[in-house]
Write a protein that binds this DNA or RNA. Structure first.
Lengths: 160, 160
DNA sequence: ATCGTTGACTATCTTTGACCATTATAGTAT
DNA sequence: ATACTATAATGGTCAAAGATAGTCAACGAT
């Protein structure tokens, strides 16, 4: 098992148990996992970015800390907002993947739905002679169309 | 017996014994068979494609892996038929729409899943400067990838 | 011809360590 | 007390090294 995954899980468990916000000491955590302190930064930089739905605040010096906030859960209406802010006219496979993972973790999508969406945006489906910018534009359109579909169904279910 | 056939059999045996999903290390396998690591890629590319009813996920770097997913036997056969005969390398939005409707009627897909798939293949998402043939190729790839996901996750009986 | 095999080169992901930046606190001079 | 300084206590950055997997073109085998 990768150390970074272990640390990621550890942090996510803390966030689940406690609240939407945790504070930790970089050096303590590094010592706990017996690794270089910068490993903690690596995990944060690769798995707790805004794209993943997290915010980080930190402070150096005596009494320093790292705070991790999980961004607020998106409601159905915010989903539409998401479409413009997070997807827009172009989106890379990686960013789309992060967004879908986030929606899955927040139970906006079922496992199957998330899997389907990831399949639909995965770069391996786009190995065709198309310029990268066009691919990203296409991905954005398809992703939005699918999300809109989800939003409609959700609303329909709520509305009766 | 050709090495590639031996490796193919080895992997299929693993999939039979264990589960419908295995994880392996490219370099370990290559060493076990005393061959070039890229030989493993060759086997995967020629015998474990989506058209054969398999899904591959992989990751590079430390702790990297190759995961292979296989459909249930029955599901797999029907899926291969669907992927090859009904989808193929190119599919128009209209034909794809018909296929999805059929799968929905046979309850292979839920309403939401069918809606998502239709959204993902609808022509309105493809209004970009891409040649029609490329669009149909792309649609085929995306549709296949989504169908494989459905088959993998739900073990749904795909009608034939 | 087509399929199989290899190896050189490339791409990606992880882990570490040296060096940098910031903040708090204790010590010292006035 | 106040100002200044030194030191300790943190966290941040970045580049290098390590660990995997992917690609592709050339060569070999059937």
């Amino acid at each position: 098992m990768r150390l970074s995954d272990t640390i990621e899980q550890f942090i996510k468990t803390m966030l689940t148990h406690d609240e939407n916000e945790i504070e930790l000491k970089r050096n303590e955590l590094a010592e706990y996992f017996n690794c270089a302190p910068s490993q903690i930064n690596y995990v944060l930089a690769t798995r707790f970015t805004p794209d993943h739905g997290y915010l980080i605040q930190s402070r150096r010096g005596g009494g320093g800390y790292i705070r991790i906030f999980r961004m607020h859960q998106d409601t159905g209406e915010q989903l539409v907002y998401l479409l413009e802010e997070r997807v827009g006219d172009h989106i890379t496979a990686m960013k789309a993947d992060h967004l879908i993972t986030q929606l899955r973790e927040r139970k906006v999508l079922s496992t199957i739905e998330a899997g389907m969406m990831k399949a639909a945006i995965d770069e391996s489906s786009y190995t065709l002679p198309i310029h990268a910018a066009i691919k990203d534009a296409l991905r954005a359109k398809i992703l939005k169309a699918m999300l809109l579909q989800i939003a409609r169904k959700s609303n329909a279910a709520l509305g009766g």
